[in-house]
Amino acid sequence: MSATESAPLNAVVEEPIEPAKPVTHAEAEAKRPSDNAPESPRKARSPRISWLPKKRTVDQSRVDELTHGRKALLCVDSVSVSFDGFKALDNLTLVLDEGELRCIIGPNGAGKTTLQDVITGKTKPDTGSVFLIGDDQDLTQLREDEIAQRGVCRKFQRPTVFQGHSVFENLELTLPGKKRVFSSLFARLTRTEREKIERVLEIIGLKDEAQKRAGLLSHGQKQWLEIGMLLSQEPRVLLVDEPVAGMTHKETEKTAELLNGLAGEHTVVVVEHDMEFVRSIAKTVTVLHEGRVLAEGSMDAVQADPKVIEVYLGGADA
């Protein structure tokens, strides 16, 4: 994506940022009745043939040990992953609170991407488990789509939208529910669903582009569309990979605002290199190094940590 696209990018991004906060608020209200939305498809799920033992449940005492009183939502419990002898994740444990905005930083090869892969089911860990509080299902035993249906969503670093579909269809596809073949074969949009899409379109400022092919959008518009898709997916946990890579200073600021708006309602995990950006949004920062948690705490505390300075901030970063 070249510089020629940065002009329309600014223009488009300008618009949606303003209503971002209020509408997430409205969103919150709209969501209230369907608060346990991710819950329902799980209950409706009929047993399906699979060779994987899916019923690996989570030990409650372990949960208490990990969370002890916190209002936790997602636990990553002693996960290890190795590729050809290289330990990408080394007995990593991480607890995310409900509605928290957590930043994960770390030098290259610290295991940031692998961690996201494990949480979303793309990579199966060698040992350890991942689970949502209140659900005894070990997520590492599930497929990607099943994890997504439980409300764990992911935004790729590269804007990944369905290029051949219209913007409207992109958002329609990510709506929760009706994900099985036969239900989608006969699915019709309900009024509430339509309204929801319209609302998201407004948030991301693509109302006028609703019927445009997503492939024809500019780089920035695609980024916003993808965020819109995640919004319409009603996630409980949102994993965002380097959201401001390749963005201008102004765009970065606005993205920070948007992510702050999302937190509170959703648990947001941001993986980022840009220190400035992390400082601007994060309350809690987790520093990964060589597949382990090196430090965790507020940005200031982390930055003062000598271990962190040595491996990460010691360099000419940020």
């Binding site: 793309k122 997504a148 369905f162 579909h165 329609e172 596809l173 074969l185 997916q233």
Partner: peptide
């Protein structure tokens, strides 16, 4: 149908479709 749109989504961006909660295997199989 929506299933058709999911199929095209799988064709273009399979992993995105998966992370949107669809099981590509079932759609392809169908």
């Amino acid at each position: 149908s929506k299933a058709g749109r999911v199929l095209r989504a799988i064709r273009d961006e399979e992993s995105r479709t998966m992370f949107a909660g669809y099981n590509p295997t079932n759609y392809k199989l169908f």
